[in-house]
Amino acid sequence: MKPDVAQVLVDLAGRVARNAAPQIPAAQRAGELGLSAMLLGLAAEMWDGAAEILVQENAALRGLLASGARVSQDNARRRWLVELAGGRDGSLRLSALQGANAELRVALIALHAELERRDDPEAKDLEADIWRELVAGAERRRLSGSPV
């Protein structure tokens, strides 16, 4: 989730403090505080589950990349996938988990594109697995007020 929650909270704190000043026009104050409140609500919901979601997703992606390392027909990609699939989340800091998640997603996109170009059953099976995980990931990240 970008922008980072912590950075946004710092910004909102300053914004709320500024809106406490009596000379702020009422309409501006209402608009800024209303939006700030909405973002605080989103932050609260995302914050609680953020680490768990990333840990689950990173584990699922490493599993797919390990399968990809066996199936890929590109030697360089196989080595890349083996390396990423063997990684682990050594830190539970969100920034570290997000960094790892981004690396894994980049590799997944490359693997997915390769599998789409192939017709063999092994590739199609793994492609189906990737779609299942993409759907599951979107479900994990779903917010309670999501319009979809």
Partner: peptide
């Protein structure tokens, strides 16, 4: 902060919308 709202509230929703359109 209006720039934060779509990023937080709509990026995953838009992913879900794409999955919906692709019938997945």
């Amino acid at each position: 902060p209006i720039l934060v709202y779509p990023a937080w509230a709509l990026i995953n929703a838009q992913d879900r919308a794409a999955l919906h359109v692709m019938e997945r």
